[in-house]
Amino acid sequence: MIPREMLRKIRRIQIRTSHQVDELLAGNWHSAFKGRGIEFEEVRPYQVGDDVRAIDWNVTARSDQPFVKLFREERELAVHLLVDLSRSQNLGTHKQTKRDLVAELGALLAMSAIKNNDKVGLTLFTDKIEKTVPARKGSRHVLRLIRELLYCEPIGTGTRLTQGIEYFHRTAARRSVAFLISDFQDEGYEKTLKVAARKHDIIPVVVQDRREAEMPNVGLVRLQDAETGQMVLLDTASRTARARYAELHRQQAAERDRLFSRLRLSPIHLETGGDVVEPLRRYFHQRETRR
């Protein structure tokens, strides 16, 4: 039984993201993603400038004037949200946790897809597959996805991106759009990601908290790795310690982004407490421009 407060939270996210999709993302999703191909729509009389290769000779033969075939892009997509639920996603030092940010993002993506008549599926993973929801349509389906994003209690604690990517690649029957949502605190997933990206349109979404990049001067603190439980003592009053902390994060982020560049993947970067809609809209516009 889902607690009443959780149900209210699910409903609030649905209402807020529905308005954001209507007001800010209308049309962007449709123009950013290609369908599976083109399909026949109708015929009309030939006009000067039409491609003669489009002439429908059967209809033309039955008429006293030439007709051409018109086609439209087949728009229905299969969209999958591949979401990392490892314990590091519980970090949040600015208004919200990374997991809350992921839930809002997932709701926005799912709502955008549904409003474009696309199917949406969900795979939640840690160092194992935690939950899968088959791709379907409809507002009730979006509510279920939001519920799982907020309410699923993972068994695993660590991050194995390979698990989520391999499962999706193995189970997706046709080419799909996949949003790979994680803080990417993992390694050794390049080969798996490369293989999956050959078949699918994979979009990495990097979620992070500002304290992962810089540590404030708050004296001596004890830090615990959420995924391994390892404890370390850090003197944040030391400029050298803070600089090393920031440099380590910078190196890790640079290596991750170089990997995306090698695979020709364009990531979306989001931060807790920050805007979600504008980075998505900007990304959709960039995709449309590249097309």
Rank of each mutant, 00 (worst) to 15 (best):
L24V: 10
A26I: 13
A26G: 13
N28L: 10
N28R: 12
W29H: 13
W29I: 11
H30M: 14
H30R: 09
S31E: 14
S31C: 15
A32W: 00
F33R: 05
F33W: 10
K34T: 13
K34S: 12
G35W: 00
R36W: 13
R36D: 13
G37D: 08
G37K: 12
I38Q: 11
I38W: 11
I38N: 13
F40T: 06
F40W: 07
F40L: 06
E41T: 09
E42S: 13
E42V: 14
E42P: 15
V43E: 15
G49D: 06
D50Y: 03
D50E: 06
V52G: 07
V52A: 05
V52M: 03
A54T: 04
A54P: 04
A54N: 07
I55V: 01
D56F: 00
D56Y: 01
W57H: 11
N58S: 10
N58Q: 11
N58R: 15
V59E: 01
T60V: 01
T60Q: 00
R62H: 12
R62P: 10
D64I: 11
Q65M: 09
Q65K: 07
V68P: 15
K69N: 13
K69S: 06
L70Y: 14
L70T: 07
F71K: 07
R72C: 11
E73C: 11
E74D: 15
R75K: 10
E76D: 13
E76C: 15
L77S: 08
L77T: 11
A78H: 15
V79A: 12
H80E: 05
L81Q: 01
L81A: 00
L81D: 00
L82A: 05
R87N: 12
R87D: 12
S88Q: 11
Q89E: 12
L91Q: 01
G92E: 02
G92Q: 03
G92L: 02
T93Y: 14
H94Q: 08
H94R: 09
K95D: 09
K98I: 04
K98S: 05
K98C: 08
L101F: 00
L105W: 05
L105K: 06
L105A: 09
G106C: 03
A107F: 05
A107K: 03
A107M: 08
L108E: 00
L109H: 10
A110N: 10
A110Y: 08
A113H: 05
I114C: 06
N116V: 07
N117L: 13
D118P: 02
D118W: 03
D118Y: 05
D118I: 02
K119P: 12
V120N: 07
V120H: 01
V120W: 01
L122Y: 08
T123H: 09
T123W: 03
T123L: 07
T123Y: 03
L124Y: 02
L124E: 04
F125Y: 04
D127C: 02
K128N: 13
I129F: 00
E130G: 09
E130R: 03
